[in-house]
Design a protein around this nucleic acid. Structure first.
Lengths: 303, 303
DNA sequence: TCGCTTCGATACGAAAATCCTATCGCCCTT
DNA sequence: AAGGGCGATAGGATTTTCGTATCGAAGCGA
């Protein structure tokens, strides 16, 4: 992946926003002819025409318009790279906080928080809800002291203390035909259904477990759409746009329009674990380890 | 924005992922010495050491680790740009991107999504769950086409179409003494309770409505702790660490450990609205406006 | 109708950035 | 002690990006 294309995308953004090559060139600090050449190179590389040149300037084509939202996100994140680099230069430290995946908010988080509070009543604790992938990054970055996330083994430098096992359950729109039969559902019954999946990048182990469970049941999961969060996943199910495999931790929420059904077997999934950065074992992380041992006696020992 | 530095960051990302300058060079299609030089130039420019060189290769420093997640996102999104360009080349439509607050996921989002799907069955829709403050920024930046958020009036350039009114309800830990009495709860009954609040920055209008409601009931709300998301707010209530005022949209979730009680009055709150950027009224936004009018006939007219 | 202006595009050489190969220094293993 | 593997240094070559000059097309005003 040649990040050089990102620069040209920035050029295109500038032209699209100015509607004029000359003004965009002035904004970018170059002259107009090389800007024209860079835009042409980008169009050649992407294989689409991005700008319609008119007598009065340039405006995005339909394809150019369609790309603008994601290019704006890219530009915003490029700014974040810059500001993060400045923070790193300044040696900034992150405040004490924890991350928690949505599906653990109501089963694992309350006992852990109560345990922490019993040990240190005056301590402030900030909880940031995020998915496993973001939690891993936040731990590595030092933005949080520990996390409740779905990991099944150490990922150096991250240490993982599993707190319990978990099972996948099927989430279906209420009134779905498969709900007519009582009892646990064989996974193969979902073979022809549209699945609402979270992207693999959020939690690869979790995603792969779902895919392998489907394959063991004899079908390839067909991802009809991807959503960005666990809650949005259930919202799509509620809207009648597909079914989902979710952890039993999500089923405790009972959102309207969604019916949960256990799977025959049952089908194991990656459970929730306490996770912390072994290279940065803060006092808060140590307190969380102690509180987790108290709240979840069956939890595995830290390796 | 100096995009040129991004190219070197792409080089850094390759080395960090390979753990080896030689293999990273091969992946990037260059030889090892210029790659070393590019990384050194990047480190000099940032004033931060990104890689620790060892006898067996290289691994990211702490500062380097902190950069990796956002660089990976950039790389991923650059790939998404390329794949979206391919789809556009093939004549397919761009996906719609929308933002949705958590409390609207299960009441307002499903009918809207069904309406959009009825109008354009082949269009993809990406839903990003976020709070009102983030939704406003994403709309301003042109990162999403429209949003479901808690706003009560236009905020130029943002246009607001209220979809319904809303009321605050009290969220209390199960077993709370105030639950002994049946029927709506006078807000003054919460005067001595610890409140779990969302930061004002998330939705100032929503926050101010809560504070003013408490003042009208004769007491100042005492914020014992702040959390980062609506779901985490309920999780703290479930943990027994306070009570919360939440929109009735959150009450439909019925998370374990939390009991909801209507408030006497009742106490109005800022409702959910369809929001879009009036300066960038995309086709997707127009489709959402039409779908909202269909799904919520009582919705206010766009001004 | 004609001349002027404005827009982006082409051409060519200059400047800057990035690359190549050859080789080095260091450290570990055999 | 010798060899191998790692990243670093050095010097020149190549590629990329740029600026300037100029062009072609099209619209506008006299």
């Amino acid at each position: 992946m040649d990040f050089r294309i990102l620069r040209r995308m920035g050029h295109f953004l500038a032209v699209a926003e100015e509607g004029h090559f000359g003004r965009a060139a002035a904004r970018l600090g170059v002259s107009q002819p090389p800007l024209t050449a860079q835009i042409q190179a980008l169009e050649a590389e992407l294989g689409v025409r991005l700008l319609e040149r008119t007598r009065k300037g340039a405006r995005p084509t339909r394809e150019g318009q369609a790309l603008l939202p994601i290019l704006r996100r890219l530009a915003e994140e490029a700014k974040q790279v810059e500001s993060l680099a400045r923070e790193l230069r300044a040696g900034r430290h992150a405040p004490m906080a924890m991350a928690c995946v949505t599906s653990a908010l109501f089963d694992y988080l309350p006992p852990l928080v109560r345990g922490l509070r019993a040990a240190a009543p005056d301590s402030a604790l900030a909880v940031r809800e995020m998915d496993t992938a973001d939690a891993v990054e936040a731990l590595r970055r030092g933005e949080v002291d520990f996390a409740l996330a779905r990991l099944d083994r150490d990922r150096p430098p991250l240490r993982v203390m599993p707190l319990g096992s978990d099972a996948l359950v099927a989430a279906m729109p209420e009134g779905h035909a498969l709900l007519d039969e009582a009892g646990p559902l064989p996974l193969a019954a979902l073979a022809g259904e549209a699945l609402v999946l979270l992207p693999r990048s959020i939690s690869p182990a979790y995603f792969d477990r779902q895919v392998s469970a489907c394959r063991e049941a004899g079908f390839e999961p067909v991802a009809m759409r991807e959503v960005g969060s666990a809650m949005a996943q259930l919202a799509f199910v509620a809207a009648g746009l597909g079914v989902a495999l979710v952890s039993s931790g999500m089923a405790v929420l009972r959102p309207p329009g969604v019916a949960f059904r256990a799977l025959a077997g049952p089908v194991g999934s990656v459970g929730v674990a306490l996770v912390w950065n072994g290279e940065r074992e803060t006092e808060a992380a140590r307190a969380a380890i102690a509180a987790a041992r108290g709240a979840f006696p069956a939890a595995g020992d830290a390796a």
